[in-house]
Design a protein around this nucleic acid. Structure first.
Length: 198
DNA sequence: AGGAAGATCTACT
DNA sequence: GTAGATCTTCCTA
């Protein structure tokens, strides 16, 4: 399995968010490697997106959103670390928030990190998955296109699934476009629209 | 120093 | 299912 190349992230964040679904996120810890399938994402833009961290212009803390694509951009919200991947066309601003994973490997480690037993509560939320994968500000700026890095995202084996969209979750002022993407019917998606399906 | 932030958990009706 | 408390940094005044 190969890591997704830089060029993958050098496009409109909404497109990158959509296409990140189904890909594999790998986290290397001291002794073990844990991984999960990306099942839910959201796209964020720059200064014309009121929900974006870059809404108020370039600052030290959001600088990564303006720089090289394919880097992890991590910040704290309500006591939770949230993992984003920088994505935008050349010279643009943007990032994709990883909102939920379906655990693949290292489920026991994730349970330990999270302190819960329920598999469906392990990584089904942006704050939950960073805790399960032990991701903090320390990993800010990591290049996820390098297979050997602590965090990396890999191309996945071909697989069939339907993609749904909705408005972004929890944001005060959203854009008219639906910028949240998730895999239809997947039980690890963070919110509840998927209950009724399949 | 104070407040806001894209969330989560718990305890209820 | 919904409401409210509380989670922890970092920015802004």
């Amino acid at each position: 399995m190969n890591p997704l190349p830089k060029s993958f992230y050098e496009r409109d964040p909404a497109l990158v968010a959509r296409e990140l679904l189904g890909k594999t996120l790998v986290r290397r810890l001291d002794r073990q490697t844990v991984s999960g399938k990306i099942v839910e994402t959201e796209a964020y833009y720059g200064e014309n997106d009121p929900a974006s961290k870059a809404y108020k212009g370039r600052k030290t803390f959001n600088e990564l959103m303006y720089l090289d694509v394919g880097k992890a951009f991590i910040y704290m919200v309500h006591g939770n670390w949230l993992l984003n991947i920088v994505a935008h066309p050349k010279g643009g601003v943007g990032a994709v928030l990883i909102r939920a994973l379906e655990p693949i490997r290292g489920i026991e480690v994730m349970k330990k990190n999270r302190g819960v037993k329920d598999v469906y509560a392990l990584t089904s939320g942006p704050g939950r998955l960073t805790k399960a994968l032990n991701i903090t500000k320390k990993q800010n700026g990591l290049d996820v296109t390098k297979a050997e890095n602590e965090i990396a995202i890999f191309e996945a084996v071909a697989e069939e699934f339907e993609i749904c969209t909705s408005h972004r979750i929890g944001v005060k002022r959203d854009l008219p476009k639906e910028l949240r993407f998730y895999i239809k019917g997947n039980k690890f998606v963070s919110k509840r629209e998927n209950l009724s399906i399949d």
